[in-house]
Amino acid sequence: MRLAPRIHDLYVGRNVLATVLVVWLVLLGLDATLALSGEAKNIGTGSYTFGHAVAWTAYTVPRRAYTLFPMAAVIGALMGLGQLAATSELTALRAVGLSRRRIALSVAIALSLLTAMMVVNGETLAPWAQEKADLLKGSAKYETDMAVARYSGLWAREGNTFLNAQTGEEQVDEGGRSRLLLHDVRLYRLDADGRLASLTHAATARHDANGWTLEQVRHDRFGERSATRQAVASERWDSQLDAAALASGLVKPRSLSATELRSNIEYRKRNGLDARDYEDTYWSRWFYPLNVLALCLAAVPFAFGSLRSGGMGKRLFLGMLFALGFLLLQMFFGRMAGALKFDYRIAYALPPIVMLAVSGWLFRRRSS
Protein backbone atom coordinates (compact mmCIF):
# COMPACT_ATOMS: atom_id res chain seq x y z
CA MET A 1 0.00 0.00 0.00
CA ARG A 2 1.49 3.31 -1.14
CA LEU A 3 1.66 5.90 1.62
CA ALA A 4 1.99 8.93 -0.68
CA PRO A 5 -1.30 10.89 -0.61
CA ARG A 6 -3.51 10.58 -3.68
CA ILE A 7 -6.48 12.61 -4.82
CA HIS A 8 -8.96 10.23 -3.18
CA ASP A 9 -7.09 10.57 0.15
CA LEU A 10 -7.41 14.34 -0.07
CA TYR A 11 -11.09 14.06 -0.98
CA VAL A 12 -11.93 11.77 1.94
CA GLY A 13 -9.78 13.79 4.34
CA ARG A 14 -11.37 17.09 3.26
CA ASN A 15 -14.90 15.77 3.77
CA VAL A 16 -14.07 14.34 7.17
CA LEU A 17 -12.30 17.53 8.31
CA ALA A 18 -15.26 19.65 7.21
CA THR A 19 -17.80 17.62 9.20
CA VAL A 20 -15.50 17.39 12.22
CA LEU A 21 -15.08 21.18 12.27
CA VAL A 22 -18.84 21.73 12.02
CA VAL A 23 -19.59 19.26 14.83
CA TRP A 24 -16.76 20.69 16.91
CA LEU A 25 -18.07 24.25 16.57
CA VAL A 26 -21.60 23.15 17.46
CA LEU A 27 -20.47 21.24 20.57
CA LEU A 28 -18.15 24.08 21.60
CA GLY A 29 -20.85 26.69 21.13
CA LEU A 30 -23.35 24.64 23.13
CA ASP A 31 -20.86 23.99 25.92
CA ALA A 32 -19.82 27.65 26.12
CA THR A 33 -23.46 28.78 26.18
CA LEU A 34 -24.28 26.38 29.00
CA ALA A 35 -21.20 27.54 30.90
CA LEU A 36 -22.19 31.19 30.50
CA SER A 37 -25.73 30.49 31.68
CA GLY A 38 -24.30 28.60 34.65
CA GLU A 39 -22.32 31.68 35.64
CA ALA A 40 -25.54 33.66 36.13
CA LYS A 41 -25.71 32.49 39.74
CA ASN A 42 -22.38 34.21 40.47
CA ILE A 43 -23.37 37.59 39.01
CA GLY A 44 -23.72 40.08 41.85
CA THR A 45 -21.34 38.21 44.16
CA GLY A 46 -18.67 40.70 45.15
CA SER A 47 -17.88 42.74 42.03
CA TYR A 48 -18.66 39.87 39.65
CA THR A 49 -20.67 41.18 36.69
CA PHE A 50 -22.05 39.84 33.43
CA GLY A 51 -18.94 41.17 31.72
CA HIS A 52 -16.78 39.05 34.03
CA ALA A 53 -18.92 36.00 33.19
CA VAL A 54 -18.46 36.58 29.46
CA ALA A 55 -14.71 37.09 29.88
CA TRP A 56 -14.41 33.97 32.06
CA THR A 57 -16.28 31.91 29.46
CA ALA A 58 -14.11 33.27 26.64
CA TYR A 59 -10.94 32.40 28.55
CA THR A 60 -12.13 28.80 29.01
CA VAL A 61 -12.87 28.22 25.31
CA PRO A 62 -9.37 26.82 24.49
CA ARG A 63 -9.66 24.25 27.29
CA ARG A 64 -13.20 23.34 26.24
CA ALA A 65 -12.04 22.91 22.63
CA TYR A 66 -9.28 20.58 23.83
CA THR A 67 -11.70 18.52 25.95
CA LEU A 68 -14.45 18.28 23.34
CA PHE A 69 -12.23 17.46 20.36
CA PRO A 70 -12.19 13.63 20.81
CA MET A 71 -15.99 13.52 20.86
CA ALA A 72 -16.24 15.92 17.91
CA ALA A 73 -13.67 13.87 15.98
CA VAL A 74 -15.52 10.57 16.24
CA ILE A 75 -18.97 12.07 15.57
CA GLY A 76 -17.64 14.16 12.67
CA ALA A 77 -15.72 11.24 11.17
CA LEU A 78 -18.81 9.04 11.28
CA MET A 79 -21.01 11.74 9.78
CA GLY A 80 -18.48 12.55 7.04
CA LEU A 81 -17.97 8.94 6.02
CA GLY A 82 -21.69 8.31 6.42
CA GLN A 83 -22.43 11.05 3.91
CA LEU A 84 -20.00 9.46 1.45
CA ALA A 85 -21.62 6.08 2.07
CA ALA A 86 -25.16 7.44 1.63
CA THR A 87 -24.25 8.88 -1.80
CA SER A 88 -22.47 5.61 -2.77
CA GLU A 89 -19.13 7.40 -3.03
CA LEU A 90 -17.53 4.92 -0.63
CA THR A 91 -18.82 2.12 -2.83
CA ALA A 92 -17.26 3.81 -5.87
CA LEU A 93 -13.93 4.20 -4.07
CA ARG A 94 -14.03 0.55 -3.11
CA ALA A 95 -14.82 -0.40 -6.71
CA VAL A 96 -11.64 1.28 -7.99
CA GLY A 97 -9.55 -0.76 -5.56
CA LEU A 98 -9.42 1.47 -2.48
CA SER A 99 -9.32 -0.73 0.63
CA ARG A 100 -11.07 -0.07 3.91
CA ARG A 101 -7.67 0.28 5.56
CA ARG A 102 -6.68 2.97 3.07
CA ILE A 103 -9.85 4.92 3.77
CA ALA A 104 -9.25 4.57 7.52
CA LEU A 105 -5.66 5.79 7.02
CA SER A 106 -6.94 8.84 5.11
CA VAL A 107 -9.26 9.66 8.00
CA ALA A 108 -6.50 9.13 10.58
CA ILE A 109 -4.04 11.39 8.73
CA ALA A 110 -6.65 14.13 8.33
CA LEU A 111 -7.57 14.02 12.00
CA SER A 112 -3.93 13.90 13.06
CA LEU A 113 -3.54 17.49 11.82
CA LEU A 114 -6.26 18.75 14.17
CA THR A 115 -4.98 16.47 16.95
CA ALA A 116 -1.51 18.00 16.66
CA MET A 117 -3.05 21.47 16.93
CA MET A 118 -4.94 20.43 20.05
CA VAL A 119 -1.80 18.94 21.63
CA VAL A 120 -0.03 22.29 21.13
CA ASN A 121 -3.10 24.10 22.45
CA GLY A 122 -3.21 21.84 25.51
CA GLU A 123 0.38 22.73 26.36
CA THR A 124 0.28 26.46 25.66
CA LEU A 125 -2.90 28.47 25.18
CA ALA A 126 -5.41 26.34 27.14
CA PRO A 127 -3.47 26.22 30.47
CA TRP A 128 -2.60 29.92 30.28
CA ALA A 129 -6.18 30.97 29.48
CA GLN A 130 -7.68 28.69 32.16
CA GLU A 131 -5.36 30.17 34.78
CA LYS A 132 -6.44 33.67 33.74
CA ALA A 133 -10.09 32.62 33.93
CA ASP A 134 -9.74 31.19 37.45
CA LEU A 135 -7.87 34.26 38.68
CA LEU A 136 -10.37 36.65 37.10
CA LYS A 137 -13.30 34.84 38.67
CA GLY A 138 -11.72 34.54 42.11
CA SER A 139 -10.58 38.16 42.24
CA ALA A 140 -13.97 39.52 41.14
CA LYS A 141 -16.09 37.30 43.39
CA TYR A 142 -14.08 37.68 46.58
CA GLU A 143 -12.56 41.15 45.99
CA THR A 144 -9.23 40.15 47.50
CA ASP A 145 -5.67 41.28 46.92
CA MET A 146 -4.61 38.00 45.40
CA ALA A 147 -2.31 36.89 42.62
CA VAL A 148 -1.10 33.59 41.23
CA ALA A 149 2.48 33.25 40.02
CA ARG A 150 3.13 30.10 38.03
CA TYR A 151 6.54 29.44 39.60
CA SER A 152 6.08 30.99 43.05
CA GLY A 153 2.63 29.79 44.02
CA LEU A 154 -0.23 31.76 45.52
CA TRP A 155 0.12 35.30 46.87
CA ALA A 156 -2.45 37.11 49.02
CA ARG A 157 -2.48 40.21 51.18
CA GLU A 158 -4.18 41.02 54.47
CA GLY A 159 -3.31 44.46 55.78
CA ASN A 160 0.46 44.65 56.17
CA THR A 161 0.89 40.84 55.97
CA PHE A 162 1.64 39.06 52.69
CA LEU A 163 1.01 35.31 52.33
CA ASN A 164 2.82 33.05 49.89
CA ALA A 165 1.96 29.35 49.52
CA GLN A 166 3.77 27.12 47.08
CA THR A 167 0.85 24.74 46.64
CA GLY A 168 -2.37 23.58 48.27
CA GLU A 169 -5.60 21.69 47.88
CA GLU A 170 -9.13 21.42 49.20
CA GLN A 171 -9.91 18.30 51.21
CA VAL A 172 -12.95 16.67 52.77
CA ASP A 173 -12.57 15.38 56.34
CA GLU A 174 -14.23 12.30 57.83
CA GLY A 175 -17.27 14.34 58.78
CA GLY A 176 -17.83 15.46 55.19
CA ARG A 177 -16.70 19.02 55.90
CA SER A 178 -14.34 20.79 53.52
CA ARG A 179 -11.03 22.29 54.56
CA LEU A 180 -8.19 24.09 52.82
CA LEU A 181 -4.60 22.93 53.19
CA LEU A 182 -1.73 25.15 52.04
CA HIS A 183 1.84 23.84 51.85
CA ASP A 184 5.19 25.61 52.27
CA VAL A 185 3.64 28.83 53.58
CA ARG A 186 5.49 32.09 54.23
CA LEU A 187 3.99 35.12 55.97
CA TYR A 188 5.80 38.43 55.42
CA ARG A 189 4.79 41.20 57.86
CA LEU A 190 5.87 44.77 57.14
CA ASP A 191 6.11 47.61 59.66
CA ALA A 192 4.74 51.12 59.19
CA ASP A 193 7.87 52.15 57.25
CA GLY A 194 7.52 49.27 54.79
CA ARG A 195 10.44 47.31 56.20
CA LEU A 196 10.27 43.58 56.83
CA ALA A 197 9.36 43.16 60.52
CA SER A 198 8.98 39.38 60.63
CA LEU A 199 8.99 36.29 58.47
CA THR A 200 6.96 33.24 59.46
CA HIS A 201 7.44 29.93 57.71
CA ALA A 202 5.01 27.03 58.18
CA ALA A 203 5.10 23.62 56.60
CA THR A 204 1.30 23.71 56.34
CA ALA A 205 -1.52 26.15 56.98
CA ARG A 206 -4.88 24.49 57.51
CA HIS A 207 -8.28 26.19 57.49
CA ASP A 208 -11.32 24.35 58.83
CA ALA A 209 -14.37 25.12 60.94
CA ASN A 210 -12.08 26.26 63.78
CA GLY A 211 -10.16 28.77 61.68
CA TRP A 212 -6.50 28.80 60.64
CA THR A 213 -3.82 26.57 62.15
CA LEU A 214 -0.12 26.71 61.32
CA GLU A 215 2.02 23.61 61.76
CA GLN A 216 5.82 23.21 62.01
CA VAL A 217 6.22 26.96 62.42
CA ARG A 218 9.38 29.05 62.46
CA HIS A 219 9.26 32.77 63.35
CA ASP A 220 12.07 35.15 62.37
CA ARG A 221 11.71 38.65 63.82
CA PHE A 222 13.91 41.52 62.73
CA GLY A 223 14.86 44.53 64.85
CA GLU A 224 17.06 47.53 64.09
CA ARG A 225 20.27 45.58 64.75
CA SER A 226 19.09 42.13 65.70
CA ALA A 227 17.17 39.06 64.56
CA THR A 228 15.53 36.36 66.66
CA ARG A 229 14.16 32.95 65.78
CA GLN A 230 11.47 30.91 67.47
CA ALA A 231 10.14 27.49 66.46
CA VAL A 232 6.82 25.94 67.54
CA ALA A 233 5.11 22.73 66.52
CA SER A 234 1.66 24.23 65.99
CA GLU A 235 -0.19 27.47 66.65
CA ARG A 236 -3.39 29.32 65.85
CA TRP A 237 -3.29 32.07 63.24
CA ASP A 238 -5.79 34.88 63.71
CA SER A 239 -6.53 35.83 60.12
CA GLN A 240 -9.63 36.90 58.23
CA LEU A 241 -8.35 35.65 54.87
CA ASP A 242 -11.19 33.95 53.02
CA ALA A 243 -10.35 30.28 52.50
CA ALA A 244 -12.75 30.06 49.54
CA ALA A 245 -10.99 32.96 47.85
CA LEU A 246 -7.60 31.36 48.38
CA ALA A 247 -8.87 28.00 47.10
CA SER A 248 -10.15 29.67 43.93
CA GLY A 249 -6.71 31.18 43.38
CA LEU A 250 -4.76 27.94 43.61
CA VAL A 251 -3.25 26.80 40.34
CA LYS A 252 -5.23 23.75 39.22
CA PRO A 253 -3.49 20.83 37.46
CA ARG A 254 -5.46 21.58 34.28
CA SER A 255 -3.83 25.04 34.21
CA LEU A 256 -0.31 23.61 33.95
CA SER A 257 1.70 22.35 31.01
CA ALA A 258 3.14 18.84 30.99
CA THR A 259 6.58 20.15 32.04
CA GLU A 260 5.06 22.06 34.96
CA LEU A 261 2.93 19.08 35.94
CA ARG A 262 6.05 16.92 36.03
CA SER A 263 7.80 19.46 38.27
CA ASN A 264 4.81 19.55 40.62
CA ILE A 265 4.69 15.76 40.78
CA GLU A 266 8.37 15.60 41.72
CA TYR A 267 7.93 18.41 44.30
CA ARG A 268 4.97 16.68 45.95
CA LYS A 269 6.63 13.27 46.05
CA ARG A 270 9.79 14.82 47.46
CA ASN A 271 7.78 16.39 50.27
CA GLY A 272 5.48 13.43 50.93
CA LEU A 273 2.37 15.11 49.44
CA ASP A 274 -0.42 13.56 47.41
CA ALA A 275 0.42 13.89 43.70
CA ARG A 276 -2.38 11.76 42.23
CA ASP A 277 -4.38 14.64 40.70
CA TYR A 278 -1.26 15.92 38.97
CA GLU A 279 -0.27 12.46 37.74
CA ASP A 280 -3.78 11.93 36.39
CA THR A 281 -3.66 15.14 34.35
CA TYR A 282 -0.05 14.57 33.30
CA TRP A 283 -0.60 11.13 31.80
CA SER A 284 -3.92 12.12 30.21
CA ARG A 285 -1.95 14.69 28.18
CA TRP A 286 0.49 12.06 26.95
CA PHE A 287 -2.24 9.61 25.90
CA TYR A 288 -4.47 12.27 24.31
CA PRO A 289 -3.34 11.69 20.67
CA LEU A 290 -3.58 7.91 21.04
CA ASN A 291 -7.07 8.23 22.51
CA VAL A 292 -8.32 10.30 19.56
CA LEU A 293 -6.81 7.88 17.03
CA ALA A 294 -8.15 4.76 18.76
CA LEU A 295 -11.62 6.25 19.18
CA CYS A 296 -11.92 7.26 15.53
CA LEU A 297 -10.49 4.01 14.13
CA ALA A 298 -12.93 2.02 16.26
CA ALA A 299 -15.83 3.99 14.81
CA VAL A 300 -14.73 4.03 11.15
CA PRO A 301 -15.87 0.44 10.33
CA PHE A 302 -19.47 1.48 10.99
CA ALA A 303 -19.31 3.70 7.90
CA PHE A 304 -19.26 0.48 5.86
CA GLY A 305 -22.13 -1.93 5.64
CA SER A 306 -25.25 -0.93 7.55
CA LEU A 307 -24.56 2.78 7.47
CA ARG A 308 -25.01 2.81 3.69
CA SER A 309 -28.75 2.80 4.30
CA GLY A 310 -28.68 4.53 7.67
CA GLY A 311 -29.66 8.13 8.27
CA MET A 312 -27.89 11.01 9.94
CA GLY A 313 -29.56 10.24 13.24
CA LYS A 314 -28.15 6.73 13.31
CA ARG A 315 -24.63 7.95 12.60
CA LEU A 316 -24.94 10.65 15.24
CA PHE A 317 -26.24 8.17 17.81
CA LEU A 318 -23.42 5.69 17.15
CA GLY A 319 -20.82 8.45 17.33
CA MET A 320 -22.11 9.73 20.64
CA LEU A 321 -22.41 6.19 21.97
CA PHE A 322 -18.80 5.42 21.09
CA ALA A 323 -17.46 8.72 22.40
CA LEU A 324 -19.37 8.60 25.67
CA GLY A 325 -18.59 4.92 26.19
CA PHE A 326 -14.90 5.57 25.67
CA LEU A 327 -14.86 8.59 27.98
CA LEU A 328 -16.69 6.63 30.69
CA LEU A 329 -14.28 3.73 30.32
CA GLN A 330 -11.31 6.08 30.54
CA MET A 331 -12.79 7.87 33.55
CA PHE A 332 -13.42 4.53 35.27
CA PHE A 333 -9.83 3.36 34.83
CA GLY A 334 -8.49 6.78 35.89
CA ARG A 335 -10.55 6.73 39.10
CA MET A 336 -9.52 3.14 39.78
CA ALA A 337 -5.86 4.10 39.36
CA GLY A 338 -6.31 6.88 41.90
CA ALA A 339 -8.23 4.72 44.38
CA LEU A 340 -6.08 1.58 44.10
CA LYS A 341 -2.84 3.52 43.52
CA PHE A 342 -1.62 1.66 40.46
CA ASP A 343 0.26 3.19 37.54
CA TYR A 344 -1.72 5.81 35.62
CA ARG A 345 0.07 4.75 32.43
CA ILE A 346 -1.69 1.39 32.63
CA ALA A 347 -5.03 3.08 33.33
CA TYR A 348 -4.75 5.35 30.30
CA ALA A 349 -3.33 2.66 27.99
CA LEU A 350 -6.15 0.13 28.54
CA PRO A 351 -9.09 2.09 26.96
CA PRO A 352 -7.33 2.81 23.61
CA ILE A 353 -6.08 -0.79 23.51
CA VAL A 354 -9.67 -1.98 23.94
CA MET A 355 -10.88 0.39 21.23
CA LEU A 356 -8.12 -0.61 18.80
CA ALA A 357 -8.96 -4.28 19.43
CA VAL A 358 -12.63 -3.52 18.67
CA SER A 359 -11.57 -1.69 15.52
CA GLY A 360 -9.45 -4.63 14.32
CA TRP A 361 -12.23 -7.11 15.01
CA LEU A 362 -14.79 -4.98 13.14
CA PHE A 363 -12.47 -4.55 10.17
CA ARG A 364 -11.99 -8.30 9.92
CA ARG A 365 -15.71 -8.88 10.28
CA ARG A 366 -16.56 -6.36 7.56
CA SER A 367 -13.91 -7.83 5.28
CA SER A 368 -15.14 -11.43 5.69
Results as ranks from 00 to 15, higher is better:
residue 348 Y to D: 02
residue 132 K to D: 13
residue 295 L to Y: 00
residue 292 V to W: 01
residue 264 N to E: 14
residue 83 Q to E: 05
residue 275 A to I: 10
residue 317 F to Y: 00
residue 67 T to E: 12
residue 243 A to I: 09
residue 254 R to A: 15
residue 68 L to F: 02
residue 69 F to K: 01
residue 86 A to E: 04
residue 31 D to M: 04
residue 190 L to M: 15
residue 68 L to Y: 03
residue 169 E to Y: 11
residue 175 G to Q: 11
residue 323 A to I: 00
residue 75 I to A: 05
residue 363 F to C: 05
residue 253 P to I: 10
residue 141 K to C: 08
residue 35 A to Q: 08
residue 238 D to K: 09
residue 329 L to H: 08
residue 77 A to Y: 01
residue 250 L to P: 03
residue 102 R to P: 08
residue 258 A to L: 13
residue 254 R to I: 14
residue 148 V to K: 10
residue 109 I to W: 11
residue 282 Y to C: 11
residue 328 L to M: 08
residue 99 S to F: 11
residue 136 L to G: 11
residue 119 V to H: 01
residue 58 A to M: 15
residue 255 S to N: 10
residue 63 R to T: 11
residue 327 L to W: 14
residue 126 A to R: 10
residue 31 D to H: 04
residue 302 F to Q: 00
residue 311 G to P: 00
residue 183 H to P: 07
residue 238 D to G: 08
residue 99 S to Q: 08
residue 174 E to M: 10
residue 208 D to H: 08
residue 80 G to P: 12
residue 203 A to N: 09
residue 8 H to F: 13
residue 361 W to T: 11
residue 286 W to V: 05
residue 111 L to H: 07
residue 104 A to H: 14
residue 285 R to L: 02
residue 66 Y to N: 07
residue 236 R to L: 04
residue 278 Y to D: 14
residue 148 V to S: 14
residue 115 T to M: 07
residue 96 V to I: 15
residue 191 D to E: 08
residue 131 E to T: 03
residue 146 M to S: 05
residue 157 R to P: 01
residue 151 Y to Q: 05
residue 123 E to P: 02
residue 353 I to D: 02
residue 299 A to V: 02
residue 351 P to Y: 01
residue 64 R to F: 01
residue 147 A to T: 04
residue 2 R to Q: 12
residue 6 R to M: 02
residue 112 S to A: 14
residue 235 E to G: 05
residue 107 V to K: 05
residue 355 M to E: 01
residue 268 R to H: 11
residue 167 T to W: 06
residue 96 V to C: 15
residue 244 A to G: 07
residue 139 S to E: 13
residue 230 Q to V: 02
residue 58 A to G: 09
residue 296 C to D: 07
residue 146 M to Y: 05
residue 54 V to M: 13
residue 7 I to N: 10
residue 177 R to K: 12
residue 39 E to W: 10
residue 1 M to E: 11
residue 174 E to G: 13
residue 85 A to G: 03
residue 130 Q to I: 01
residue 309 S to E: 05
residue 61 V to F: 03
residue 169 E to W: 10
